[in-house]
């Protein structure tokens, strides 16, 4: 039924609507209630082993943080290579299908490293980040990035790339670079806050 109404870009439109709804929600008063409801969860995070290790050993926290940065670097490299190819800027003599597919495999593992190390770090400073608006901006950006990657970009690129309008391909590539840059930038911003 949605396909009949929304045409061939059903998933793209629905994902964009979810991201837009999340953004709108974050600017409403209802967000405050959800924020309060989440406090026990963040308190619990600090009591976990991850929280204990993160708070007790600065060296362990910094090492995991370095792993987070390496994961971010590899993820960024994948995004730049894959989207750079879609934009026709690099590796133009290699089929874009090959670059996009192979980069996606590495992207997945880099994302796993980012999430795993990110959860550890969040446990170590749970109550600090709970009160930081920029942490929530980052989560919003990360959510948007993952939704965009797995529900917009990937389904789109499954099709024969020659059959996709070049403008749509290029817009997708630019949006992908921007959303992951936003994730990285908001992450860095956390370091300056609090």
């Amino acid at each position: 039924m949605p396909t009949a109404i929304l045409g061939p870009y059903t998933r793209t439109i629905l994902t964009s609507a979810i991201i837009a709804a999340a953004l709108m929600f974050s600017f409403t008063y209802a967000r405050v209630n959800v924020h309060i409801e989440l406090m026990p969860f963040f308190e619990w995070m600090e009591t976990t082993w991850f929280g204990y290790i993160g708070k007790t050993w600065g060296g362990a926290f910094a090492t995991i943080q370095a792993g987070h940065l390496v994961g971010l670097g590899v993820l960024g490299g994948c995004v730049l290579v894959s989207d750079g190819r879609l934009l026709g800027l690099i590796l133009t003599d290699v089929p874009h299908r090959t670059i996009v597919d192979r980069a996606d495999t590495v992207f997945f593992w880099a994302l796993v490293v980012l999430l795993a190390t990110g959860i550890f770090m969040a446990c170590g400073v749970a109550m600090k980040i709970y009160y930081l608006p920029v942490y929530w901006y980052k989560m919003l950006a990360l959510g948007a990035g993952m939704l965009f990657h797995y529900f917009v970009r990937r389904p789109l690129l499954v099709h024969d790339l020659e059959s996709i309008n070049p403008m749509i391909l290029k817009s997708t590539a630019i949006a992908s670079i921007l959303v992951w840059f936003l994730v990285a930038a908001t992450g860095r911003w956390i370091g300056f806050s609090g």
Binding site: L72, G73, G77, A103, V106
Partner: peptide, 21 residues
């Protein structure tokens, strides 16, 4: 890091057969 180290790691991973084989 995303430009320098990210791309360097992709080149290294290619040599190890773990990326873009």
């Amino acid at each position: 890091l995303m430009v320098s180290l990210g791309i360097l790691f992709l080149i290294d991973l290619r040599m190890l057969g773990w990326a873009f084989p």
